[in-house]
Design a protein around this nucleic acid. Structure first.
Length: 798
RNA sequence: GGGCCUAUGGCGGAAUUGGUAGACGCGAUAGACUUAGGAUCUAUUGGGCAUCCCCCGUGCAGGUUCAAGUCCUGUUGGGCCCACCA
């Protein structure tokens, strides 16, 4: 029978359904555990993208291998289902986001099942399930109780025309991205999570993770730990002082002015009467610029003098104070000491405002600030020292004076956690009439998102839930009248802990049984896109550490090993998009070529972590290889033998060795190449030892499960290879009696030598002398011989 | 501006971590089978050339080494992230 992928897929999908083949008993601790997880998808209206199967196939291969190796494998799937796109689509098309999202989930699930992925569907949930978001809210309540959630008025981008708050990315040059309406920075009440309380832990925890280097770097960068010194500057003629933060305390003698951020509380307090008007105007203008506009405009350094003087604590020098928006209010203390000679920004500002420049390191400052390392000058006790030495003595002096202290700073800011949107988890808080915020008691969770006809943002910038029915809005807290919080959580909330719920998804009493969490966490292998290198992965780490701290689980880190799949690009090497017309629909591929061909192609196209262009001929090649394997089993059974002739020993045992190692390293393309070599050898062989073919089919079946199951049944009569033992290899079968090594003259490869294993240098040279090719180049006397057994014989002559 | 990654045939990519560069696949060429082949099988396939001999070849320029795609220095192009973080 020829290879009919549709019939085979139908048969084995049914088999998997009927037998619940991949259900995992998470309470079975008798076997070692392996938890392999995909980043759960956001079920968009477009359905599955051909990029999805790439990561999913990779984890599936590992899951299948681990099951055969005797692990109890947890391999679940679920849905990240709250979020803005569904809400926007629903508004546009006048449907309810839940209805729309549930439909998308059903579609995604069907598409994923068609791919032969070995998920345990009994663990499935969506973040929009009340049963799930009850615990998302519970975590928030615990954070609130632990002073990690607070409300604050912070500036947001508000667009009056659109009647809504916009994300930074939606604001371009002070105008809304859509419509081009003006956007104001106005303070608005927001819920904030104090992720900065975990900055240090999140930084330190990175060193124990088996994660891609680039992702670790990005997280480090985002957390932005910096070691420096905080210095007190007194304001002349007042009792006021302010702190500056610097990583270059060694340049303190070169400080010729100070700058405060426009948001700095002392600006309005300190400003001299004559400068008051100009300064207030400047501050007002700065506040109107969005963060984006403030940084994307040309790097011109603007600022206004406050008309007051500060005193440099190291030498008593009197210096002017400015307000300037190149100083960030949210970083450090919102104030800097300016050293124009050795900081490019200060240099530009000083030049523009005609401020003095004092050089304190040797170097050229005629055109630019000098920022390298050199001997200090004009620095009193630090003269002659390099940066490190000067930092040490100046810091010591400041500490003695009580005017400075070492300090660690982080770029990481607290997490704005509220959204003025409908399609998210309601924040489980109620406000009593005295204005106090109270967490909803745990027994009253979940706070169910009310069904609403009109869930558009309210015109005055208030969240859609402010239009919810009174019965929902009005509540009580310990007998007092209260109103519910109408902000919702961001999409991140549900994805920050979902990996915990899978171990115990139906638990009604706790978010998951601690015993199960402690057995299964951390996740052993987590695969997903690099676009989540910072936010999702950082939030998930934050949640896990918090939950550890309140005793929910022992693990401190959620994901032990992380890997990013690359993108599947269009055939033209560009990102797939409708406008480029290079989108490939996985449904078409599965229908015409089969899920196995799609899986094989995506794994063979190149290294998992690199982006690869789509290639129809590559897909055809994959299909061709499957047919070649299929034909071998179907049409050449007269070659099969239960006696091992030894013919395929080396080929098979090196195959098992390579595939075992490559699967572990997620190096699927090279594993597949080796499988092709084996099949080529098998075609050439006179007889094929049947157990070798069975072993091959089990490994091949991890990549192409449908045809793998079919062939395994044909070979063995048994249904389902999924819990069969993983093939083993015999190292002694790999050791040949002879090795082929390279023969080089003067470092240049000239020939190969076939030598007995363990041949001595003398034997090797004897053999080399028989090589005509090499002897041609052996002119002169032998100067040196380098012999690396099993690798190379290099003879140096002159 | 800073950080990280990357560069190998016509194409996707291998290379035991310093040891004959180009595994495997795609594409191409020739042949076999066939009514037919866009199926299958066999052979060849980095470039040059005096064609199985030799020379040149891993973005570019240097260096270390008996030996470099691999290590070091510099440089150019591509990708991703952060971006006035004091």
């Amino acid at each position: 029978m020829p290879y009919d992928h549709q019939a085979i897929e139908r048969k084995w999908r049914q088999f998997y359904e009927d037998n619940k083949t991949f259900e995992c008993d998470t309470r079975d601790f008798s076997k070692p555990k392996y938890y392999v997880l995909d980043m759960f998808p956001y079920p968009s209206g477009q359905g599955l993208h051909v990029g999805h199967p790439e990561g999913y196939t990779a984890t599936d291969i590992v899951a299948r291998k681990k099951r055969m190796e005797g692990y109890n494998v947890l391999h679940p799937m679920g849905w990240d289902a709250f979020g803005l796109p569904a809400e926007q689509f629903a508004i546009k098309n006048n449907v309810h986001p839940e209805e729309f999202t549930r439909k998308n989930i059903a579609h995604f699930k069907e598409q994923i099942k068609a791919l032969g992925l070995s998920y345990d569907w009994s663990k499935e949930f969506a973040t929009i399930d009340e049963d799930y978001y009850r615990w998302t809210q519970w975590i928030f309540v615990k954070m609130f109780e632990n002073d990690l959630a607070y409300v604050s008025d912070i500036p947001v981008n508000y667009c009056e025309e659109l009647g809504t708050v916009l994300a930074n990315e939606e604001v371009v040059d002070g105008k809304s991205e859509r419509g081009g309406y003006p956007v104001k920075r106005i303070p608005m009440r927001q819920w904030i999570l104090k992720i900065t309380a975990y900055a240090k832990q999140l930084e330190e925890g990175l060193k124990d993770l088996d994660w891609p280097k680039s992702t670790i770097e990005m997280q480090k960068n985002w957390i932005g730990e910096s070691h420096g010194v905080e210095i007190d500057f007194a304001v002349k003629g007042t009792k006021e002082s302010f702190q500056v933060y610097t990583t270059r305390v060694d340049t303190l003698y070169g400080c010729t002015y100070c700058c405060l951020a426009p948001e700095h509380p002392l600006v309005k307090k300190l400003v001299s009467p004559s400068q008051r008007e100009a300064v207030l105007k400047y501050v007002e203008e700065a506040s109107r610029k969005s963060d984006l506009a403030r940084t994307s405009l040309e790097k011109e350094k603007t600022g206004v003098a406050l008309g007051v003087t500060a005193i440099n604590p190291i030498n008593g020098r009197e210096i002017p104070i400015y307000v300037a928006d190149y100083v960030l209010g949210a970083y450090g203390s919102g104030a800097v000491m300016a050293v124009p000679a050795h900081d490019e920004r200060d240099y530009a500002f000083a030049r523009k405002h005609d401020l003095p420049i004092i050089q304190v390191l040797e170097g050229d400052i005629s055109e630019n600030a000098f920022t390298g390392d050199a001997k200090h000058i004009n620095s009193d006790l630090a003269d002659g020292l390099d940066i490190a030495g000067a930092k040490a003595v100046i810091t010591k002096k400041l500490v003695e004076l009580g005017k400075g202290r070492e300090k660690v700073n982080y770029k990481l800011r607290d997490w704005v956690f509220s959204r003025q949107r409908y399609w998210g988890e309601p924040i489980p808080v109620a406000q009593t009439e005295d204005g106090k915020e109270h967490a909803v008691p745990v027994k009253d969770l979940p706070v169910v998102l009310p069904k609403m006809e009109d869930y558009r943002p309210a015109k005055d910038g208030k969240p859609p839930l402010s239009k919810a029915p009174k019965a929902w809005l009005e509540t009580t807290y310990e007998g007092q009248k209260a109103v519910r919080e109408t902000n919702t959580m961001p999409q991140w909330a549900g994805s920050s802990w979902y990996f915990l719920r899978y171990v115990d998804p139906h638990n009604q009493n706790v978010l998951a049984d601690k015993e199960l969490l402690d057995h299964w966490l951390p996740v052993d292998l987590y695969i997903g896109g690099q676009e989540h290198a910072v936010l999702h992965l950082l939030y998930a780490r934050f949640y896990t550490r918090f939950l550890h701290d309140i005793g929910v689980l022992e693990a401190k880190e959620p994901f032990k090993r992380l890997y990013h799949q690359g993108m599947i690009l269009g055939a033209n090497g560009e990102k797939m998009s409708k406008s480029r017309g290079n989108v490939v629909n996985p449904d078409d591929i599965v229908r015409d070529f089969g899920a196995d061909s799609l899986r094989l192609f995506e794994m063979f196209a190149g290294p998992l972590n690199e982006s690869k262009p789509w290639s129809t001929s590559g897909l055809t090649g994959s299909r061709r290889f499957i047919e070649r394997v299929y034909r071998l089993v179907e049409d050449f059974s007269d070659k099969f033998s239960d006696q091992n002739s030894g013919e395929l020993d080396t080929s098979y045992h090196s195959l098992v060795k390579k595939v075992s190692a490559d699967f572990e390293a997620l190096s699927f393309n090279t594993a597949i190449a080796q499988m092709m070599v084996f099949i080529n050898d098998a075609y050439k062989a006179k007889t094929i030892y049947r157990p070798y073919l069975e072993g091959f089919v089990k490994m091949f079946g991890c990549i192409c499960p449908f045809v793998g199951e079919e062939l395994f049944e044909k070979l063995t009569g048994k249904k389902g290879f999924d819990y069969e033992p993983w093939p083993t290899y015999d190292e002694s079968k790999l050791k040949k009696d002879e090795v082929t090594i390279a023969l080089a003259i003067n470092g240049k490869g000239r020939d190969t030598l076939t030598l007995p294993v363990g041949a001595s240098q003398e034997e090797a040279i004897e053999a080399a002398k028989k090589s005509e090719k090499a002897m041609k180049h052996m002119v002169g006397t032998i100067r040196k011989v380098i012999y690396v057994p099993g690798k190379i014989l290099n003879i140096i002559v002159s």
